[in-house]
């Protein structure tokens, strides 16, 4: 089934290439594999180096985002007062696309050294934070009533209910939150790199290839790299979920 999908995609690609300036799949594949470990002349870096730079930024920012979103999500779900303060803020900020924060980030972080880097990390932070928070919050708040009732019937103390009922149920939210957050973060960093000056990174690579011109195959190869990494991240995290939650 998956193979059929891939064949269809490649077929459609050839079709579109025939009538537009889109380079053919084999040209892109060739460029992709060459640039994977050989430096592209304009920027002097390989695709792997660009990907590593982007990934490093995403991991830094996401880790920061998760280390705040997860505890905050759980605590707000359990504390009504805090939830009443936090949820309206989150609901108001969440619909703002991460990219809309770029100009503001520049202004806010202007006094810091490495404004661009800090801003990019902030953009990814915003992208990763909200989906993670919402996922954790929703799961922590919606612990099945039947299980809580069961725990009460057995006169379980609050601490035990938290440890053995609420938190394990939240874990699903935490893990999907991490997976979705990383996905959005990955999309945000590529876009943030395209707008800001980065020196390296896949988004920057694509932008420079476009500016210098005549490098559509390089552009598509860069896009393919983004896709490959996004896919790998998702698959790895799904695998990790199964490992962390064997009961599912």
């Amino acid at each position: 089934m998956r193979l059929k999908g891939a064949i269809l995609l490649i077929f459609l690609w050839y079709l579109v290439s025939a009538i537009t300036e889109l380079p053919h799949p084999h040209e892109v594949a060739e460029t992709f594999f060459i640039l994977l470990f050989n430096s592209e002349p304009v920027l002097g870096k390989t695709l792997v180096q660009h990907a590593a730079a982007s990934l490093l930024r995403v991991l830094t920012a996401s880790l920061l985002a998760f280390s705040i979103a997860i505890p905050l999500g759980i605590v707000s779900a359990l504390n009504r007062t805090l939830a009443e303060v936090v949820t309206p803020m989150v609901e108001a900020l969440r619909p703002i696309p991460p990219l809309a924060w770029i100009p503001l980030a520049y202004v806010i972080f202007a006094p810091l050294p490495n404004t661009v880097q800090v801003s990019q990390i902030f953009i990814v932070f915003v992208g990763a934070f909200f989906p993670c928070f919402v996922s954790v919050f929703d799961y922590s708040r919606n612990v099945p009533e039947e299980l809580l009732e069961m725990a009460r019937v057995f006169k379980a103390p609050e601490r035990l209910i938290l440890r053995d009922v609420v938190l394990p149920h939240s874990l699903q939210g935490v893990l999907s939150g991490i997976r979705i957050g990383l996905g959005v973060g990955w999309m945000s960093i590529i876009a943030a790199e395209m707008i800001a000056t980065s020196g390296e990174g896949l988004g920057y690579f694509i932008l420079v290839m476009y500016e210098v011109g005549g490098r559509t195959a390089e552009i598509v190869a860069g896009m393919a790299m983004i896709g490959v990494i996004g896919y790998l991240m998702n698959t790895l995290l799904l695998k990790a979920e199964r490992l962390v939650m064997p009961w599912r």
Partner: peptide
């Protein structure tokens, strides 16, 4: 108390679920 639906904690094993009642009480 035995419920109509089993109401077991999905993330606990058979052992863990039974142990839960003991810890609770």
């Amino acid at each position: 108390f035995v419920f109509q639906d089993d109401r077991l904690l999905p993330w606990k094993t058979v052992y863990g679920n039974i142990q839960f009642a003991l810890k609770a009480m």
